[in-house]
Computed example of a mutant assay.
Amino acid sequence: MASSAPVAIVTGGNSGMGMGIVERLVTKGWNVAIADINPNAKFAEQLGDAASFFKCDVADYDSQAQMFQQVWDRYGRIDALCANAGIVDKRQIMSNFKGVVYGTQLAIHFMRKNSTPGGKIVATASVAAIVPHETYPEYDGAKAAVVNFVRATARILKDKESISINTICPGIVHTSIIPQEMVDAVSPDCMTPVSTIVAAYERCLDDASLFGKVIECSTDKQFELEPPTLANGHYSVRAVTVWEPLFKMWVVCPDAMPD
């Protein structure tokens, strides 16, 4: 029997921003599946019956697929994917970008099975996706890929699947992946609190009209970032187009996509 309350999966839900998202959703009456590679049984227990833990490595498609199936088997619905998990290490392209792609593919599959098909996806990117941080070039690239993935998929997901997808770009937030020395080097008034990220997630989950949005979170503020423009007007615009045969091969038939 399907849960009477909406169900959200929060990846990376056992630390940092993920914990803030989980806590807020629980207070709003959601059932929350905490998907994380690291267990934190105490956190889920503190939240009561509304939260449950599912071990998951977002960089591994099979691990995510198993987690999604377990969540579906438990609740009978999946209304939202908060693709928040992120790391700064040698696996960051797999976790930070492909983890979002895998999660989106699986969310589409399961959200089609909801009693009312559709749902919402929100992914955590970074301001480094917009203006790269020279310290972390691979991180910059992975997060920029998330931004472009969201912008490229938003219209088709909304029209075809009744799924809205948006992305949040936090400034520097004091979480476990940020070295304390780096936090100390930033002026306190330039730090972004977790509450700003949580508020942006909440906005995307509450407002059905939002899709394809890239939302910068800086200090206590949110800003919608417009897509960049190309320089040569009509000629540049025509160079970025949908060619139907390729669209069918890569989007309609995703099995054709290489790893």
Rank of each mutant, 00 (worst) to 15 (best):
E216R: 13
A83T: 04
M111L: 10
T104V: 14
I37N: 10
R151Y: 03
S164D: 10
Q70K: 10
G212T: 02
V147T: 05
I87K: 10
A5N: 14
A144C: 08
W30G: 03
S52M: 10
N38G: 04
I178C: 03
F110K: 01
D79G: 07
A128N: 12
F53Q: 12
S176P: 00
K221G: 05
L25E: 04
C190I: 08
K248P: 01
Q66S: 14
K158G: 06
A41L: 15
A50F: 04
D159L: 13
D62E: 15
D189P: 02
G29W: 01
P245H: 13
G48H: 02
V242S: 12
V198S: 09
D220L: 13
V237K: 14
T241R: 13
A200E: 01
A256S: 13
F211I: 05
A35M: 14
G18Q: 03
V32Y: 02
A50V: 00
H234P: 14
N114D: 11
G99T: 02
L106V: 03
V183H: 07
E181I: 12
S115P: 13
T116V: 15
W72Y: 06
T241S: 15
Q92Y: 01
N114Y: 10
L47P: 09
T175L: 01
E226S: 12
A44F: 03
V58K: 08
A231Y: 09
P117A: 00
E202N: 11
C169M: 08
S164L: 05
Y136G: 08
A185T: 06
H109G: 10
L225Q: 12
K248M: 05
P6C: 05
A128K: 04
L230N: 12
L47Q: 10
S126D: 06
T11M: 07
C217N: 03
C217D: 00
E23G: 02
K158L: 11
I37Y: 09
D62Y: 09
N31C: 14
Y61D: 00
E134A: 15
S63L: 03
D79Y: 07
N40Q: 02
P245M: 11
Y136N: 11
P258G: 07
D159G: 03
Q66H: 11
Y139S: 05
N148Y: 14
Q70S: 11
Y235M: 15
P170W: 05
G212H: 01
L81N: 03
V186W: 08
K28H: 09
I108V: 14
D140C: 15
D60V: 09
W243H: 13
I197V: 05
I87S: 07
T219Y: 11
T167W: 07
T241H: 13
A5V: 10
